[in-house]
Design a protein around this nucleic acid. Sequence first.
RNA 1: GCCGGAGUGGCGAAAUUGGUAGACGCGCACGACUCAAAAUCGUGUGAGGCAACUCAUGAGGGUUCAAGUCCCUCCUCCGGCACCA
Length: 809
Amino acid sequence: MKDFKVYDHKKLDQKWRKAWDEANVYKTTEDADKEEFYILDMFPYPSGAGLHVGHPKGYIATDIISRYKKMKGFNVLHPMGWDAFGLPAEQHALKNKVHPKINTDENIARYKEQLEKISLNYDWEREISTTDPEFYKWTQWAFIQMFKKGLVFESNEPINWCPSCKTGLANEDLEDGKCERCDSEIEQKPIRQWVIRITDYADRLLADLDKLDWQESIKESQRKWIGRSEGAEIDFAVKDSDDKIKVFTTRPDTLFGATYMVLAPEHKFVQKWIDEGVIENKEEVENYAKEASKKSHIERGDMTKEKTGVELKGIKAINPALNKSGEANNEELPIYIADYVMADYGTGAIMAVPAHDERDFEFAKKYKIEIKDVISGRKNEDEAFIGSGKLINSGKFDGMDSEEAKKAITEFVGGKMTVSYKLRDWVFARQRYWGEPIPLVHCDKCGVVPVPEEELPLKLPEVESYEPTGTGESPLAGIDEWVNVKCPECGGDAKRETNTMPQWAGSSWYYLRYIDPHNSEALVDKEKEAYWSPVDFYVGGAEHATRHLIYARFWHKFLYDIGVVKYNEPFKKLQTVGLIMAEDGRKMSKRWGNVINPDDIIDEYGADAFRTYEMFMGPFDQAVNWSTKGLMGPKRFLDKVWKMQDDLASESSKKVQAQLHKTIKKVGEDIEGMKYNTAISEMMILVNLAEKECISKNDFEKLLLILSPFAPHMTQELWSILGHNTFLIGEQWPNYDNLLLIEDVVTVVVQVNGKNRAELILPQDTSEQEVRELALANEAVDKWVKKTGSGEVKRFIYITGRVANIVVQ
RNA sequence: GCCGGAGUGGCGAAAUUGGUAGACGCGCACGACUCAAAAUCGUGUGAGGCAACUCAUGAGGGUUCAAGUCCCUCCUCCGGCACCA
C-alpha cells in the first residue's frame, strides 16, 4: 500500500533535470539591482578516465553555496569549463593516431554528461575550453601585451628538461626534482626558451597576499615560494685580475669574517679561468664541475650528505673590508667551487663566513679553513653562531650592532643593499604540439615581431606527427608552410615561433572569460568585469598553491596594469577541498582498481544521496575515505524526509518549532562557513524529532527549502506535490525567528567542585538565586556538599541555562 | 631541519570557542514485523563496576570553580618547502 512512498530517483531526478533545463533556470545575466556573487570551481582537465567520486566534492560544495546565495537574493555567477590543453591528450593522440582535439572533445562530452547527472547549477551557456581558438585568441593576445611591455624575453640558459616528455619545464612543474607528469629525473639543458618576467611582480605577489581571505597554509606556501630575502650585493676583487666576483649575502655585517669564497660549479668565471689557464689544478676542477652537473636536483639538494668542493689553486679573491681597512696581510681569500652553492640563486657566488653560517662552518671544518668570529655571542665551539650581536674583529665597526652594521659595511665597501627571490622567471615555452602557439615571428631584419592582433587567433595547424622531436624544437617546426611567413613589419621572409605555451597559460585567466564568454572584441567587457569581479569564492585542490594560483595572480596583475581588469587580485576568498580517498585508504586510481564511479552511485542511490553524503563525510577541507556503507546514513535521512509528506499535522509541536528555527539558523551559517557536515546533522536532528512529534505542512516546507541546496531533486518533487509550481532555486531562503529559538525549559547541570552531581530541568527564566536554592535543595547535591571537605559552600557559579558549580571548601 | 595543520569510541566525526566530552552518522547487539530474508521501526552501544561511582580527548606538567579547548615540555601522523647564502 505504501509502494509509491519510495522516492523513485531514476525517474524523478531525470524529470526535474529536464524541467530545469527547459526552463533554463541556471542562466545568469547581469542585474545591477542585485548584489553579485561569483563562485568558482577550479576547472578540470578532462582526462580519459572520466570522473571518480572524489572529483565532484568541491563542485557539490560550490553548488550548494550557489543555490543558497541565489535563494538569499544574490545574482550568482557559477560557471564551468575545461582546461583541455596538455600532455595526456597528446600522448593519446600519439598512441592512437587521432588528433588530440578529437580525444579532448570526447573527454569533455563524457565529463559534462557525468557532471550533469549531479545537477550542478552551472550556466552552461558560459562554458569555455582553453583549446577553443576563440578562447586562446585572448591567451595569445595577453601574451603579446606582455611581449610589448618587455615582460617576455628569449633565453638560452639551461633549464629543466624532461627527457621523457621531451620538453622544457618551469620550476613549478617539478616535484622533488622530478617531472611532475611522468616522474622522470630532470636534466639541466640549454634550450632556446621564451621566459616571462614574473619576478618583476614578486614584491606585489608577496605583499598582496596579506589582504586575501585565503587559508594561511596556502599563503605561507606562496610566501615561501616567492622567497624574498633582503641583503647586499658586494664585489670581491680577484687578485692580479680585473674580474670581480659579485656575491649576494644577507649578512654583510659579517664581511670581516669572510675567510673564503665559493662559486657554483656552473659559474661563468670557472670556465673563463680554465680557458685563460690561470687555474693550476685545472683537471681536478673540471672533473668536479662535470660531476656536479651530472648530479640531479635531489642529490644536490640533499643537505644530509657531506659538503664537497675543490679549491681553485692559483687564484685568490680580496676581502674588500679588510682591504679597505688596510689589513693587507690577511685580506686574501681562497676560492672554491662547491655544489652547495646554486648557480641560479643570488649571484651564484657567496662569501663564506664559517663562524656565522652553518653550511660554511661545516665546509671550513672539513677543509681546515680559518673560522673567524666577528659577532659576539658565541656559546658553543662546535657550531656556527648565526644570531645577531655586537661586532668584533671588524676594524672601525667593532661594537656596532649587527643590524646597523649591515648597511654601514655595505656602504663602506661600495656594495648595495638589494633583494633576492627564490621565485624564478616563468619558462613559458614547451616543445610540444598540444598547446597554444606562441604568436611571435622571427625576422632576420626586424628581430622578433608579434603576430598582428587582428590575425589572432593564431590557430594550431594540423601536423603529420605529434611526436616531440626531442631536439628542443616542437613538432610545429616540421610544417614548412606554417613556419615560413612574411614578416608583419617589413614583409620580408620570416619564420614563426614553433614552441607552444605551457598548460598553465589558459588557466591563468579563464575565470575572466566566463564573465563575457562570447566577446569577440575584447578579452572581457569592462563593465561586466567591474560588475562580477573579483571571484568572491574559489574552491579547488591544494596542489595548485604554488602553480596555478601564483600564475593566475601574476597574469591578473598584469591585466590590471594594462587596464583590462578593475581589481588587482583575482580571487578574494579561497578554500581547498580535501581529497576523497578509496575505501582502502589509497588514492583512487586505475592502477589500484579502487575507483568508484559517481554514475554507478547515482544510478543506485540517486544524485541527492550522493550529494548529501559527500558533504556529510567530514570536514570539507579534510581528506576522507569513501564508504558506500556510510552513504546509507544520508540516504536513510532523505528517505525519512520523503515519508514525512504523509504525516503532516495542522501544527508543529513546540519542540519541533524550536528545533526548526535552530536548524534554519545553523544550516545558513554552516553553508557560509563550509561546515556542511554539521548542517546536515542538524537537519537530521530535526527530522528525527519531527518523526516522534509532529510537523506542520508550513514548517515542512521550510525544511524543504533549506534542504534543497543539498538534495535539489527530491525536495523539488515534494515541493511540487505540496502544490507549488515554482522552482525551489528561485524561492526565498526562510528566516528564523529568534524568539522561537528559545526553549522554555533548560537542563542545568549541577556540579560540586567541578564534578557533575545532578541535573535540574528548570523553566528558561529561572533566576540565579532560585537555581542556587533548588540546587542546594537537591538530595544528591546536598549529599556531595556534605561529603566534600568542610561541607561549607564557598562559592556558587552559574552559567545561565547550562551549568551551576558549587565550590565547597 | 624549517613552515603549516592535526591527534577525541570499533569507524567518519561533533562540542555554542573555557561550561554536561562523544551530537549526527556508520558499524555492532537485542527486540518488533516476516514462513524466512531484505527493507523498515524500537532499544542499547567510550572503558571498568551488580551498583553507588571511578576513569577517559597522543604523553607529562601547569593555570582555573571548571580544560578536548589556554600556557610549558615532549611524542606521533599528514601536507608544503628544503644546502636560498
